[in-house]
Amino acid sequence: MFVPPANTPDLIPQKFPFVMIDHLTWTDDKSSRTQFCIKADNVLVEDGEFSAGGLVENIAQTAAARAGYLAQNSQKADAIGYIGAIKNLEVFSLPKINDILETEIVIDNQIFDVTLISGKVKRGEETLAQCQMKVFIIQQ
Rank of each mutant, 00 (worst) to 15 (best):
V56I: 15
N88H: 05
I12E: 05
I97G: 00
N98P: 04
S93E: 14
K120S: 09
I111F: 09
P17K: 00
A67H: 10
G48M: 05
R123T: 10
S118T: 04
G124T: 10
L44R: 00
G54E: 02
G84M: 12
K96N: 03
Q130H: 13
T62E: 10
D28Y: 06
K39E: 13
I138G: 04
E104C: 14
K120G: 04
D78S: 07
V106N: 12
D47L: 07
Q72L: 12
T25N: 03
A129T: 10
Y82E: 08
T115V: 12
T25Q: 04
D10C: 02
I38H: 01
K96C: 05
G81V: 10
T25H: 02
A52M: 07
A64Y: 11
F92Q: 02
G81N: 07
A6D: 15
K134C: 12
Q14D: 13
A129L: 12
L24R: 06
R33I: 11
K122M: 15
K120E: 15
I107W: 06
L44T: 02
G53W: 11
N109M: 14
V106T: 15
S51Q: 10
P13V: 06
F36V: 02
V19S: 03
T103F: 13
R123Q: 15
E125Q: 10
Q75Y: 04
K30Q: 15
D113V: 12
V135I: 15
S51T: 15
L24E: 12
A79W: 06
A64W: 11
V3F: 13
V56G: 01
S32Y: 11
T103H: 10
V56C: 14
T27S: 12
P17W: 02
I80H: 10
P4L: 13
S74W: 08
E46V: 11
L11Q: 05
V121S: 03
R123P: 07
L116M: 01
V91Q: 03
A40D: 14
P5L: 12
Q140K: 14
P17S: 00
K120A: 12
M20H: 03
D22R: 01
P95Y: 05
Q61K: 01
L101D: 02
F92H: 03
L128I: 14
P9H: 02
G68T: 06
V135P: 05
T8F: 04
F112M: 10
A52K: 03
E90C: 04
L55G: 00
T115P: 02
D108Y: 02
